[in-house]
Amino acid sequence: MNRFLRLAALLLATAALPAFADLKILATVPEWGALARELGGDKVSVTVATGPLQDPHHVEARPSLIARARGADLVVATGAELEVGWLPMVLQQAGNPKLRPGQPGYFEAASFVALRDKPARLDRAEGDVHAEGNPHIQTDPRNVALVAAALAARLAELDPPAADWYRARHTAFAARWAAAIARWEKDAAGLRGTAVLVHHDAFPYLFAWLGMRKVATLEPKPGVEPTTAHLAQVLELLRTQPVRMVIRAAYQDERAAQWIAGRAGIKVVTLPFTVGGTDGATDLFGLYEDTVRRLKEGLK
């Protein structure tokens, strides 16, 4: 028992050391991890809960995530029920009251942007629908700008001594970001009006941004695996509504997209969807650069 007490005392002393002065951030998905790094620089240490090739809907409350949440000062989530299956569980088991929803340590990106596609009918027969709207907000860089402003303010609130640092970094980021958006928009001007198929309805924000048009999804309902019957229907639809390409996120099974692309004579375009999703998407800027580049490839 004595040995146990000594161990406990040692652990507590380690935890109390001021060596970990930087803000510890747990981001649920890579894009918010990348954004936190852009805004926090070396004043933050960021852990990302999911890999770039992971379906963000389907994550488990892994032991490593509980350990990360235990020591975090801030959790940066997407919200809009994207993490509903695992984040509440992780937070409940981590015993870290700073991260409870409602506390400054709990940040939901979706509360700072206008969500699209709020379902008119809330019924699981419609598939894996999200009551608050489509949560995949990061496919429009203008949403990232809004989230960045809110996140920088939150970082400043949580770490007052470095508040000016976060503000300055945000100002610099916002300027670079605005310039980059203008560049991407100019670059992607040729995509306006392009009709596409998409595997999962993961890109409504991207399509709204670039003025593209979704004709159909390969999934019969959100989150429901494509069936041959549904794919045949989509193929039939293409006779009257031709499309230029079929789009899938890098984490999705590519067989359905290949199947329909082969029959319809269109290209499969694999988009990074998040930072790290493709080799080109090394950071937030690369994410959109690569997205636009790949979409333009699909037009050729």
Binding site: S111, F112, V113, A114, L115, R116, K118, E132, G133, D140, R142, N143, A145, L146, Y205, A208, W209
Partner: peptide, 11 residues
């Protein structure tokens, strides 16, 4: 806030 034209429905 409506960052994307056309404005998406508010939450």
């Amino acid at each position: 806030a409506a960052p994307t034209p056309p404005p998406a429905p508010a939450r």
